[in-house]
Nucleic acid binder design. Sequence first.
DNA 1: TCGCAGCCCTAACGATCGTTAGGCAACCCC
DNA 2: GGGGTTGCCTAACGATCGTTAGGGCTGCGA
Lengths: 223, 223
Amino acid sequence: MTGSRVMNVDPSDGHRPSRGGTRKAELVALASRMFREHGYHGVGMRALADAAGMQAASLYHHFRSKEELLLHTIYVVDRDMVVEQMPLLDGPESHAERLARLVRAHITHIGANRDAWLVAGRELRALSPDRLEAVQGYRRDYQRRIARHLAEGVDAGEFDCPDPRLATLAILDLINGPNEWFDPGGRLTIEQIADRYAEMVVRQLAPPAPTAGGGPTTRDGDT
Amino acid sequence: MTGSRVMNVDPSDGHRPSRGGTRKAELVALASRMFREHGYHGVGMRALADAAGMQAASLYHHFRSKEELLLHTIYVVDRDMVVEQMPLLDGPESHAERLARLVRAHITHIGANRDAWLVAGRELRALSPDRLEAVQGYRRDYQRRIARHLAEGVDAGEFDCPDPRLATLAILDLINGPNEWFDPGGRLTIEQIADRYAEMVVRQLAPPAPTAGGGPTTRDGDT
DNA sequence: TCGCAGCCCTAACGATCGTTAGGCAACCCC
DNA sequence: GGGGTTGCCTAACGATCGTTAGGGCTGCGA
């Protein structure tokens, strides 16, 4: 476990879902979509309630505040990133193979949770400091795990990469990109994009050639 | 000229700057910073005015509305992208050299206009349809110019790239990435990041090897 | 059959929103 | 020295903001 987590801000409620916690999930999904379209501050509780066919005050039977509703939206993305995607870097396969698997899963997850991903990407600043810290902790863990994977791949001679830390940022820049422009009705499916982006990442890190013994470059020292 | 522009929404005022249009520029820069930190809808005219040492109503002597203020912020970025960056793809140099030049200039411009870039990236939805269309026209032009450059590079045998349109998106994802995380006090300067990202882009497109005549792959047909 | 929890309602709170009207002081050009 | 412009002011408009108080209906478990 990397970053010492400060407090427990997990929004999952402790009480049983009785007949179904489905209503709450519906409201979170609806909020994700509206926050994505108009921004967190651009959507009022009354607009949310209207879209859900209820009154603004009734939302407070499901969420303590508007910000808690935002946290529910963001949490799905960041929790999955750490508990589902990150373990994909473990395993007996080659470093390139494991990294490609992560890239594909990451982009596929974006395709399946577009609303939440966009909100998670641009509405973080609306969170209270404690909750912001918790979410950013997840992201740090994710980023560090990838950086470690690259460094290990370089040490194993499987990757050619002059600056693994910057390469980590570049990879994240790349695989978070479809978040901004992916269109389900577009030319390519999310799986095709995932495959091709994974190829690009692997190609970027591939050692120059399987020719003579001139091994891959070593890492920079930190500046 | 690529996209037929619908209307003139250029926010640059037609009247002479008299003694100085500096005050207006100050207000735009201030708005960029505050919009970046709290979001367009998260900053009120009164908060803006407070930070500028004036009253909210006084802002309306410089801008017709809050949205016009936002447009000023966004416009700098998108206009420069088309009138300054895009021409960098012209010239007698190799396709790789010209593309690297664009990438470096693009990232350097982000470093010099961080506030405006972040606002331009995530507050577009607050623009009215006409103004949104104008801004998106700029971006389409930019994207198409890059796509054309890649296609020409492939045809010239300088690039190896199975899908130039997707590669364009990937390049844009990559070079817009520092927009989200660049820290002026961080490990690397913006120039270093620009150089290394440019290397990555070139490396990604480099043909497999200068060996035998097995030429680069051809482009996909559109799906 | 009773009680209670889940779910939603109406009504209202004080605060803040973007914007407008109208006026006052300082400055340039003629 | 008068006219016009620039830059800011006070005061206020109706609308909307997040949130709270308190009550009523429904349907399950005991």
